[in-house]
Nucleic acid binder design. Structure first.
Lengths: 266, 266
DNA sequence: CAGCTAGTTCCATTATTTGGAACGCAATTT
DNA sequence: AAATTGCGTTCCAAATAATGGAACTAGCTG
């Protein structure tokens, strides 16, 4: 090390020993296909010996597991930690009653998500019946630029921050209506800032649209969003738009509760 | 290889730099009350300077967050990682259709959990409607000795392993029928080994009981369990017992699928 | 405003990580 | 069979990154 500056083809946070370990974990997490030792070696820019010990440590800590075919899988300890993280999460706890109320008022699925880099991580979800995979969403990471919650959250960011994030985004056209470039996104954000409401017009998944409102801490170092999602065949865009005030109110209510419970600095 | 896991009595794994970091994370995770810096200092055997840097690194990596009042909270990145861990988990994927089938056959809630040290971590859950907290269970860690899945899993362990785990358990009487000492648990495990079926007779939560069957890899280095849970006011113990064969079959089916899909070594 | 307590920074010492190279083992190929 | 190649694993001197005692600062509190 030391030399060669440190460019690298792929990922590399390389912040201290911990950072390197997390890099490995994230490489495994991000791969859609199973990774074996050599595959990882190609992804993480670390010498063999080092990588090998790194992986051993992660396995020792139960953060990683080896499958029968020698490929790696994230460890179950992560599920345990996440479960605890979820239930101790203060923001989620504060928002919960408001999500519930919003769900009762609309009858549709309500999501709570926070901005994390250029992704939205869903923190909670309230829905009616639904036979399918529960918790399909919690912890799920989606692109910001094509989700209601994501765009709402972006709109709450100070300009400098916003630009920084937009700069690092990689756009991918998920549906016909996806905003697929920076200019379109910037225009949309302007609009959202004006109205206080964000729409996802089937930009992520065809047939699914939503209304969302921003939530943020006083200093905007923490930004998030609430949304009401519905299938377009059942709920028209006009109907969705009628819920906008409710969603905005929910967002405001959460912010008020934050101020009240976390003190004025929050 | 890879073994030697399992310890985890108090704090201080101290295995390398990563281990120390995880210690901190787990201390935060395990605490029922918010922890501030000095509180942590008392829990994790590390000098101030060191702990402080440790915490800073964890925050840097977004594995930890500071709340407004300076107490710590597990980071949302954990949710993201866990979500990916969950969907990539091979065992869960193999078991899923069988859980679903078991749910259809009984109409009650089905759980899948794996043994992790002296706890059971729930990996999946299939249930009917349920207005309450979704994913209430996934990632949740419960004591082995008072859950159906836990006892079923224990019964699949080789004697030496079983004794090792029993030795490190700390018993806590959750209900009137909780097995509250090693002798009682050992007797129960014997019984389960004989019948292949484990019952939780309201040993964890009053009013809730379940039938469970063990699942394990060929070499028993991996043990888990499936269960059908029901409220006792609606489903009597006799009725529950009638489902035993179904549950056992589900367990066997999962093992067969594992052998088929992961090769004979699994 | 003095006296705490809790949190943060410094830096010489020390222990841990590093990474190049070699080893062992299967599966392929010759 | 012997040779080759691909993959995972182990070693160890050199170098980097972690350690931890002590000094410093910010916020309370009486």
């Amino acid at each position: 090390m030391t030399k060669s500056g440190g460019e690298n083809a792929t990922r590399t946070n390389a912040t201290g020993t911990l950072g390197k370990a997390i890099d490995v974990l994230e490489a495994v997490a991000a791969s859609p296909t199973p990774l074996r030792f050599t595959d990882l070696l190609g992804l993480v820019d670390q010498p063999r010996g080092t990588l090998h010990r790194q992986v051993s440590n992660l396995i020792e800590e139960e953060l990683l597991t080896v499958r029968a075919d020698h490929s790696y899988e994230l460890g179950i300890k992560l599920l345990k930690l996440a479960s605890l993280a979820w239930s101790a999460n203060q923001f989620r706890a504060i928002a919960e009653p408001h999500l519930r109320h919003l769900h009762e008022a609309t009858g549709e699925t309500v999501h709570l998500g926070v901005l994390q880099g250029v992704e939205v991580i869903y923190l909670d979800k309230v829905e009616g019946r639904q036979a399918v995979r529960m918790h399909s969403q919690i912890g799920n990471a989606s692109p910001v630029y094509c989700t209601g919650v994501g765009k709402a959250a972006l709109s709450a960011l100070p300009d400098a921050e916003l630009e920084k994030r937009i700069a690092t985004m990689i756009f991918h056209r998920h549906t016909e209506s996806t905003l697929a470039d920076r200019a379109a996104l910037r225009a949309e954000i302007d609009e959202i800032r004006r109205t206080g409401i964000a729409f996802d017009r089937q930009e992520h998944e065809p047939g699914i649209h939503c209304v969302a409102a921003p939530i943020h801490s006083r200093d905007r170092s923490f930004v998030a969003g609430v949304s009401v999602t519905a299938p377009s065949y059942r709920i028209g865009l006009a109907r969705l738009a009628e819920w906008a005030p409710l969603v905005t109110q929910a967002g405001h209510a959460v912010m008020e509760d934050m101020a009240a419970r976390l003190g004025p600095k929050a």
